[in-house]
Simulated assay, not measured.
Amino acid sequence: MARIGRCWMAVFGLTLTTAACGSSDVIEEGTEVTPITRAESPDNEFTPVELEARVDNLVAELNKSSLEPMQMVVLLKELSGFFEPITTGANRAMGELEVTGNVLGPTDQSDDPTTSQDLQNQQVKQAVADGAAGIGVSPFDNVNAAAIDEAVANGVHVVTLDSDLAASKRSLFVGTVNKAAGATAANTLLAALPEPPGTVMIHGNVGPEWVDGYDRTQGAVEVLANAGYTPLVTQAVFFGDNETFDVDWMKSQIESADPPVIGFLGLFNISYRCVLAADAAGIPDVPIVAYDFDPKTVDYMRKGRILATHTQRQYYEGYLVPYILYGIKTIGIDATKQILAPLVDEQNRVNIGIDVVPADKIDAYNAFLDSIGSIQ
């Protein structure tokens, strides 16, 4: 049977981004099957070679099977900002697979988190009602687990991305495994630190209530502690008019640290504040390593104040999900996991890794993002 794609639409205030759309729902007998063909991957130092190889292997196995039409949807918290590269990647993959599907997100971000959570639950239910065989979803909270479980009970494969709901019945999670990401960032800083003893300030998350932030922080803490340094975690403050408070608090901790602070590691998009704290405490020459690609972080990298940053692979996060959903439906979950095995951990998480971007590679990294159509 030949593969076809057509558009479908859910309602209740959603922005819709179209993937592959065909002109007909009718498949004629004897129609030749079109093999899946991927867009050529860029030849770049930042191209994730192992990840690309896994997708190639999955496509090769899929092309040996009976390729069938499939309807799927990818549900995101929003379609702009952080999620824009995810949208790009998911749409590209659905186009290559010639599936019926869309990437959906709310048109407005409500200040009430319950509204967003309820809307996502409605989206999941609507996708099931509309006949989707696979759903990719970036869940808001545990309150979305019941809707995911209901979809699975109705025979729909569900893959989470960006944030996980491990307690749900989702098949796999695709994204950054935060403990590993924190460890990678800490290892980048290690290369620039003087020999221990010394305190390394981590601009991270101290409480386990925010699981992703806590896991990332603990991954960094373990690497630094095992290397003989004293990790000092200071809570990153995100909300309100907080930059001055954040910097002043870091300054006070730096001044009381014993042994003295000899390096900084920022683990979120406000990592650039480590530079401000170092200046405020009178230690501007200590090495600083950051996370994410905030314009202020990039500016400090160009000025030589931040040695490197670490960015999430949002494009690949979106790109992998349709392929995984199609793989689960076509060759089964076990065969799909076996092909992806080097990336899959014991918690059924597909770790797409992070990019390490040195300060002297900013332009090269921007060129790579441009080559895959990813804006960060």
Rank of each mutant, 00 (worst) to 15 (best):
D246I: 00
I328R: 07
N226C: 04
V298H: 11
V298D: 08
R313E: 01
D299K: 11
I331Q: 10
V233W: 07
V298A: 13
I328G: 11
A257C: 13
A280G: 08
V247P: 04
A277C: 12
T309N: 06
P287S: 08
F238Y: 12
P284Y: 12
V247A: 04
Y291S: 12
H310A: 11
V223W: 00
Q312D: 11
L267I: 10
G318Q: 03
D248I: 12
A281N: 01
Y300L: 04
M250A: 07
F239D: 15
E255R: 09
F268W: 07
E243T: 15
F239N: 15
G266F: 08
A280F: 04
V237Y: 10
P295L: 02
R305M: 12
Q253G: 13
T297Q: 06
T244G: 09
I262T: 14
V298I: 15
G263Q: 14
D294M: 11
C274T: 05
A257L: 05
L265I: 01
R313L: 13
Y315A: 10
R302T: 15
A278D: 05
T330N: 03
V298R: 09
P284G: 11
S256I: 12
E255V: 01
I262Y: 07
G327T: 14
I283M: 13
D248C: 08
S252G: 15
L232S: 02
S252I: 10
D292E: 12
I283C: 06
V261A: 05
C274F: 01
R302G: 14
T311G: 09
A225S: 11
P284C: 11
D292W: 04
N269C: 01
V321D: 03
Y291Q: 14
Y316M: 06
D285Y: 06
D299G: 12
N269F: 14
P259L: 06
A280Q: 10
D299C: 00
Y272V: 02
T234F: 10
P322F: 13
Y291I: 05
A278K: 03
D241Y: 05
K296Y: 08
T297V: 13
Y316N: 02
